[in-house]
Design a protein around this nucleic acid. Structure first.
Lengths: 195, 195
DNA sequence: GTCTATAAAGAGATAGAC
DNA sequence: GTCTATCTCTTTATAGAC
């Protein structure tokens, strides 16, 4: 997948920066991760770094966007609900990722935050896709038809986010296992599923 | 409950600061809330403010501690699960609270954060109390005995946290209503509940 | 209990050279 | 595409007077 042409170097550098950002966050924590340290991690000056992303927020947003895109491709085995579980399971293996995601998205809750619109769009999109997956399972008879797909989708997202935050403070169970359990519980509630 | 004696003024001022902190966060957003602005909101200098709480983090932690304590007393009608729903419902009426809670707790996910230990303890305590409430409902026959109380407790907390984050980006349903629905679903799954 | 003053550091971003 | 240099602003926290 090596890009060629005049932009090859720039593209590679961008990707190097996105990867390094997570390493820095893992090492220093999100709070203490400044453009200065981000730049140092990839052997650039602050000005050099900002040349690629314009601002710290855009950089972090780019890390998360890249993750989302990669996650869609990975884990081809099952539907989006299954994928979500796989993603949660693997997220804890990427130091810094949970810290970045939870803190950055919480900050972006402020309507003034430059990445607020990104998250509004992202959550809406994810909710719709997940609702589609619920409907598909209902058609296949593997999920209770009594459930409202939009509600289940919203719940699944909230659960993923909330479990990942909680996992940072110590959890008696693996978040991914918990999610699997809840999907089973929710899917069978209200009856009418093969058993 | 008006305190008297030599500390009365200090106590009142502390409470005034805690209340004002939420107002400032609601107005400026968490990111842009500095000790300078916090101080101005209560007519103190930065040094005057820090006299009471020592640091910005301790101040924010105190806001959250005070909330938790007040929440336990409010809403006496039902058990902790019912209370949780009532709390979620009312949290959205307090501008700045969701923003403070979600961002501050996410930041505190960093083990180096001064309030990390506070959240570790808080989540453990909340999980235990909620698990007790689940057990009580199971004994009363109003919650599926098939469910693991600790798992349900963890799920309920994650859901509350996750829904409140999501609500900042627009939600098709009221978080509290959603929580109620899920409690019903989870409580009936696995059968053996009066209906 | 509160202030002034100030430290001391760190932030994000830009201009302009190379 | 990258750097040096620098700006400007803001941050949290402290020392010491009142």
């Amino acid at each position: 997948m090596a890009a060629r042409g005049p932009y090859a170097k720039g593209v590679a550098k961008r990707e190097e920066i996105l990867t390094a950002a997570l390493e820095v966050i893992a090492r220093q924590g999100y709070r203490k991760t400044s453009t200065k340290e981000l730049a140092a991690a990839v052997g650039l000056s602050e000005a050099g770094l900002l040349h690629y992303f314009g601002s710290k927020e855009k950089l972090f947003e780019a890390v998360l966007r890249a993750r989302d895109e990669a996650d869609v491709d990975r884990f081809e085995e099952s539907d989006l609900i299954g994928k979500l579980t796989a993603i949660i399971r693997h997220n804890s293996d990427v130091p810094g990722l949970v810290q970045l995601y939870s803190t950055f998205s919480a900050e972006a809750g402020d309507p003034q935050h430059p990445s607020h619109p990104y998250f509004v769009e992202r959550y809406a999109r994810l909710r719709e896709s997940l609702a589609d997956a619920v409907r598909a399972r209902q058609s296949a008879g593997t999920f209770s038809p009594a459930a409202d797909p939009e509600v289940i989708a919203t719940v699944l997202i909230a659960l993923s986010d909330g479990l990942q935050v909680q996992s940072q403070f110590g959890l008696p169970v693996e978040p991914a296992d918990l999610l699997t359990q809840v999907v089973g519980l929710l899917g069978s509630a209200g009856g009418a599923v093969d058993s």
